[in-house]
Design a protein around this nucleic acid. Structure first.
Lengths: 215, 215, 215, 215
DNA sequence: AATGAATGAGACTTCATTCAT
DNA sequence: CATGAATGAAGTCTCATTCAT
């Protein structure tokens, strides 16, 4: 039956694409962008040499789709975290922060890949687009939630735009430190530092943690 | 006179090296790492094809020396800022933060290059080494100064290690945002945000700025 | 059927390797080692630029495999000649000598290639290895056969080691003269001289030829 | 005084040429033809990079002149040996043979260089020319002397042309074996083998040596 | 839908040669 | 006479892409 065949074919195609994208992530993390050849990707995936051009128009398209997949995974992750957080703005903000330090999105492998893409952001507008498209919603949530906490805050907390920016900056900066000083900082301490940042911005809503947190 | 000749020869070599390193920075910023071919570099420098291997053992060595030059430039920059800042810990801390947003080190060009290198940090230990070697001193200063401000602080400020980490993370994160959202954030507002971070950590020593600052 | 595919694929690869090795021999003979570029080889073979590195790890490996092929061809050649020669030591020795002047192994093209490799023997131990590995068996046969003829011999023939060495040296030296004086010496006269050498060493077993021989 | 200056200048030039030629021989022996770059030569000579093109029109000319120098050295060497040998043909022939195994001309270094040149003979007619020009006289002497010994000889010795050819071939072949099997054969045993060759050709005039000879 | 041999553009690198000093 | 920085042609090798099977 042709229809069934098409369905099966389509499922296989999806599976192959996914397989190749994951191999690409693996390879970028392991070898970096420049050394990630299509041979490296197909070898990683256990597939044959010429298969990439069968599922992706070009190497560049594979990279673009890989970033898209990564961005979507991240998006889905914090959206789910937010959905489970209830209605209290402080709890929602905390959930957003915690989401970024969950093992799935905050492994050293994933961080290496994120920074590999960011390292090319300036001259690859398409990467910037994909990233910003997915991140805009998160920025808005951050700002809205910061604004909701303003009432009882003085100081920086009273400037929700800056507070949101600093929150995001700290998280990104902690990610960078996780990448650059793997021995000086682990994921739990990075999370604790991020929670401390919340406490610094909104002392009426958050307590600075005194020890590393369980992520 | 041989000695004079040697001196002149050495000066010429130094000048060429510098010229090529600057062309490399220009090219990485413009084209990214992968597209920075030696032809691109020599064309940028207005020199002939083969010069690079005359002054650098290999392309990789050119990249290594370029990062070294960049790291040293940054180091010299904040050391000078610190020297001019006097003895008051708060002023010294502020000087350190301001230094990172000065036009020379915080142009979009330089940021693109920094993140290009960081994007390869995981699989190029040599890049990590060079970066960390120069950065360790700065981290120590940050932590010492944070510790000096602890006395009148509660909250996060009372944890100098975390405070220093958050300060550095915010700065790096703001750098990333300057790179990723050139239209959403300029250097002055980034500096204002960094000063706001100081105010959040040490409210007794710093006021949150109410408008973007002159860098 | 995968197995069939593998077999076909393997046959194609073998054929290409052989094709490239023969083109290499052709090119070394025509242009010499230094001028034998990969372009020259692929042009000779009527193939595209990049094939070589597809079938050989490097240019050097191509050269090594070419010498290996040459050495094996020579080995097979004299083994077959020996097999056909019967049991009489004198006939076997003669067969061994004649084999080295057969058109297939003693063309000016092949000689040029052999001496091209020998010209690099001192600083390319791998070439020496390959050559000696294949030649050791031949030296042993020569010596054993010389020893078998000793009984009725006086003079040099009574020293089988030296006799064997001189036999091999004369053959190699005649090869060199064929290469260096193509107009002063042809293959048939070289063979006659080699047979004369047998007669000089073992006058009871061999007659010096009076005219050039048919090879 | 201009004339004096010219003389001095000329002497210096001659010295430099000689210095560079010897460095070339050294380098060909050590690295082979292909790896002998002009840098290698000047480094070997302890001179500066650009000096070669000042004394030789091109790299190729340096190689040609080096071969010329080598050929002349060899020529002078056997001429002197011949001059000292007296009038007896047998003694003269022996002198000629012994000359080729003297340490100065028969070091492994020199052999490597000779075979390096011969390895290119086929496609570099100029090398062939230089070699043959110097060698023709030697061949003639060999043949004349062989002819002079014919009277009391039967067998191969009665064919002076072939005898001379076999004598030369054995010597060249022994040279090749010295190059290829440095551990299986030393200069003294090679000389003994060459004397044995004389004995094989002219048993009435020469005795086969029973032990290696002092060269 | 997959394989993998083949292509050829383009990268890095070497090096003979030139030339200002 | 000599130096050594500079040039640029040419070589080897890599690898994205194509395509017959």
């Amino acid at each position: 039956m042709p229809q069934t065949d098409d369905l099966r074919s389509s499922r296989i195609r999806q599976a192959r694409r996914r397989q190749l994208i994951e191999a690409t992530i693996e390879s970028i993390a392991k070898r970096g962008f420049a050394e990630t050849t299509l041979s490296a990707v197909t070898a990683e995936a256990g597939l044959s040499h010429g298969v990439v051009n069968f599922h992706f128009a070009s190497k560049e398209q594979l990279f673009v789709d890989t970033l898209g997949w990564l961005a979507e995974e991240h998006y889905d992750h914090w959206r789910r975290a937010l959905d489970k957080a209830g209605d209290d703005p402080a709890r929602r903000l905390e959930a957003l922060v915690r989401a970024d330090f969950a093992p799935t999105v905050c492994s050293r492998k994933k961080l290496a890949v994120w920074f590999a893409y960011w390292g090319q952001a300036k001259h690859r507008p398409i990467y910037l687009d994909i990233h910003n498209r997915h991140d805009a919603a998160r920025r808005e949530h951050l700002e809205t939630l910061c604004a909701a906490l303003v009432a009882r805050s003085g100081g920086v907390g009273a400037q929700p735009e800056r507070a949101a920016r600093l929150l995001e900056a700290s998280i990104d900066g902690l990610w960078l430190q996780l990448l650059l000083y793997p021995e000086g900082l682990d994921r739990k301490e990075a999370l604790a530092s991020a929670m401390a940042q919340l406490a610094a911005l909104y002392p009426h809503h958050f307590e600075p943690p005194t020890a590393p947190l369980e992520g």
